[in-house]
Design a protein around this nucleic acid. Structure first.
Lengths: 358, 358
DNA sequence: AACCCTTATGGAAACGTTTACATTGATTTC
DNA sequence: GAAATCAATGTAAACGTTTCCATAAGGGTT
């Protein structure tokens, strides 16, 4: 069996209590014994058992993150932010992806009890009651991009509505009239808010002049399909606003395939500003979310909640978005009208923030 | 305080043993009491404490992953693979990034003891002795892309040498003679192997005719810098092989900025085949690693190790790589010589595997 | 020299489970 | 009808820590 604190105590000729004190850096232990203990521990390759320790300290130094998925540029960035903030505080990260499977997500959530000090939950798929049924009570939790009327927990959301509104406005100001929108998944709260932003900017009504809404699911394939549909329409839309960048990529592929050029024949915009957006040709106009900041902020918020643990202001915090105008929308950033002058800017935002590995 | 198994026992009017049995689905408990217990548990919102449970069962249903970083396309894909395999087995994932900080990595490693059933370690930065000093003994571990002479643990590596060799050969066969190579970080084992593959293909000698090695660190910025250097050389290299895709991206940016076109004025190749590679213009010729498979395989291997736990074959497994010829290298896939015919293929590998979210 | 105060150390309880073992009561078997 | 078997349940030990409390040993201060 593996070596425990008792073995160290025996080897150093002291009691387990002293070993524990020495190893945790308490001051009430002699220099001499302390050294003897350290030496014994090192020699035996002793490593304390985390489960036993956190059983009694009621601290795990770990936070759990339940995300809908772990894959893709968005989550990579999100995890980066969460990890960065966690590391800064010496916390570990227990990640989990639910992949729309509610039962599995529930099981995961229950398994978290006793293993984490707090929970970060992103569950954009509306599912009333799910959280209140399955969140361990008494466990500090921060909800990210999550719907529902749960008001016991702090909540962070992205300004999807504002971002979509701004982009739509930008396209309108650029002179486009028939602007199509490609939706995200049906019951996704982010997707719904983006659609609402588009609609509000277009003039509230679902059948406002120029309004045209296609379904999608945030996947590139869905964008590609939507692109095909768009190209076959009779009064063809002049611009397409996809609810995320991956779908914009799909639309672009469909356009290229059909020999239509973007933005000349069809303007294009996305949402998220994933790293790829600025490398595409044409570079993609999009709505930037500071995704890593989002994650970082959420973790910071969670830690606050853990530290107070009593009074919960349960406020909602909104992460702002930012319009990023590149070439794909055919409209210069300063909102001038001409549709053909959009090829020269966006060369400067070539920030080297990425570090590929390997 | 939060509700424990005792509370449930009291509420159901039984002993804690019965509650435990009922909740874990043992068969030796009456239907009647079982129901009563379940009901009490549900009503009290009881969730078992993972720390207490794994303290006695010696199982955590969690595996730890220590990676150099969590960010970027490569790790995103790797985690996807690991997560997929873990979920399939009902295992949780405790991730951690070491960011080259040895002390921090050591602390993390020790903190894993008692919290995980096994460990996945990727530590491409050569550091002899580090692992043997800090890996919890008796803890099943699989080493990924990790050097050192540790022969107690199973090991998975990528065929970096073979991949780099194949790409270099491809460039040579395409008619290029002066082929430059942009290195990865100095003490990185993946990077070293890729360099070795390049050298071997070029003719072993560091100063073989046409050989030209520039330093780098896998970052886009390094590629950009290397690109600038390359453009200033007198007998300018005809082709550049970057040790990873991100650096290739940087080289491309430098070329574009200088008005040089790829592949006409300078051929370009990368390594990894990150998702972005096929979206760039020109699309990037690269060496594909099935990264997700790599992760999946590593986890499978770890689970095997955990399950046997006694005899350790401690074998090494090599993940194959695959040459992906697109347009940036200016050489068609079938190795014909002309340098100017490389613009029409690679349109078919447009696989919709990605699902951006949101 | 008796006192108190401080400091180092050990003993043992506690954390919330699971499980080996003991106990009970019912059912079968002769 | 008593003995033997069996299923359901309870009791208590164990897992490896931390920490409260008690104890012992110094070290000043009267």
């Amino acid at each position: 069996m593996s070596v425990t604190i008792k073995d160290v105590a025996k080897a150093a000729g002291v009691s387990v209590a002293s070993v524990s004190r020495a190893l945790n850096g308490h001051d009430n232990v002699t220099r001499d014994t302390c050294e003897r203990i350290m030496q014994a521990a090192q020699q035996l390759h002793y490593m304390p058992n985390g489960a036993a320790r956190s059983l009694i300290t009621r601290r795990t130094q770990t936070i759990g993150a339940l995300l809908p998925d772990l894959h893709g540029a968005f989550f990579s960035e999100l995890i980066r932010g969460i990890d960065r903030a966690a590391r800064a505080r010496g916390l570990h990260l227990l990640v989990s992806s639910s992949h729309d499977n509610a039962d599995e997500a529930a099981a995961t959530l229950r398994a978290m009890r006793g293993r984490v000090d707090g929970l970060l939950v992103m569950s954009p798929h509306a599912s009333p009651g799910f959280l209140s049924d399955n969140l361990p009570p008494e466990l500090p939790t921060v909800l990210m991009s999550t719907g529902g009327d749960d008001d016991h927990h702090a909540r962070l959301t992205v300004d999807n509505h504002g971002g979509a509104w701004a982009m739509t406005r930008h396209l309108i100001d650029g002179g486009y009239q028939r602007i199509a929108f490609v939706c995200g998944p049906e019951h996704n709260i982010d997707a719904a808010e983006r659609l609402r932003g588009y609609r509000d900017a277009m003039g509230k009504l679902a059948d406002a002049p120029g309004c045209c809404v296609l379904s999608g699911d945030f996947s590139e394939q869905a964008g590609y399909d939507a692109g095909h549909q768009l190209l076959g329409m009779d009064p063809r839309p002049q611009a397409v606003f996809a609810a995320n960048d991956m779908m914009a990529l799909g639309v672009l592929a469909a356009c290229n395939e059909a020999g239509m050029s973007v933005p000349e024949d069809m303007a294009l915009a996305g949402f998220d500003d994933i790293p790829m957006a600025r490398y595409m040709t044409p570079s993609l106009s999009t709505v930037r979310i500071h995704i890593a900041d989002f994650g970082e902020r959420a973790l910071a918020r969670l830690v606050e909640t853990i530290d107070q643990a009593d009074d919960k202001p349960t406020t909602e915090e909104v992460i702002p978005t930012e319009l990023v105008v590149r070439t794909s929308c055919g409209v210069p950033a300063n909102n001038v009208l001409p549709l053909d002058a959009g090829a020269a800017h966006a060369a400067a935002d070539h920030a080297f923030e990425d570090r590929g590995q390997p």
